[in-house]
């Protein structure tokens, strides 16, 4: 039994302690906004926040996470899609297929929490998620828009 705090709610999960956080989030917690892309922390589709830090959940076993650590998924970033990053994403109509976008948004929100005003080099260095549709330039523009648009410290 492992206790995890996901989107503000502490729950016990009866799973193998080696289970990656991604699969507990998707299969036990039932939150499917966090995506499976590669399973080896390469693509970033599985990005969530752990204590505010953008983390790839597909290669992180839950026994590496303490019960009190705060896990936030795309569903918990804001109650209604109103996080500045989500608003900027909507304003710029960023997604194409959208599969990588929860991970992109969580990575971007994580970046802005650490660095509220990133320059192009910061964005290039920190946002290494894969998008096969090719939304990179809009992701970049939306991060800058979110940085301009007000508080990015929430979530």
């Amino acid at each position: 039994m492992a206790r995890l705090t996901i989107n503000g709610e502490a729950r016990d999960f009866d799973v193998d302690p080696e289970t990656p956080l991604l699969w507990v989030i998707r299969e036990q917690a039932g939150l499917t906004g966090t995506k499976f892309g590669c399973g080896i922390a390469q693509c970033g589709a599985c990005t969530v926040h752990i204590d505010g830090i953008a983390t790839r959940s597909c290669a992180m076993p839950i026994n590496a996470i303490a019960p009190e650590q705060k896990i936030v998924t795309i569903e918990g970033l804001s109650p209604d899609g109103s996080h500045p990053v989500q608003k900027a994403w909507l304003a710029l109509d960023v997604p194409q297929c959208g599969y990588c976008q929860p991970g992109m948004i969580m990575a971007a929100a994580g970046l802005l929490q650490q660095n509220p005003n990133p320059n192009d080099e910061d964005i290039s260095a920190e946002i290494t998620n894969i998008c096969r549709c090719g939304t990179y330039n809009r992701v970049r523009a939306a991060i800058k828009e979110a940085a301009k648009g007000g508080s990015t410290q929430a979530g």
């Binding site: 939150l31 499917t32 906004g33 966090t34 995506k35 499976f36 998924t73 795309i74 569903e75 970033l77 899609g81 989500q86 994403w89 909507l90 109509d93 960023v94 997604p95 959208g98 599969y99 976008q101 929860p102 948004i105």
Partner: peptide, 16 residues
């Protein structure tokens, strides 16, 4: 696009 909002919140359901 008509299909953006749910792609920003995790609500969009894919086959997986």
């Amino acid at each position: 696009r008509l299909d953006t909002a749910d792609k920003l919140t995790g609500k969009q359901v894919y086959g997986a």
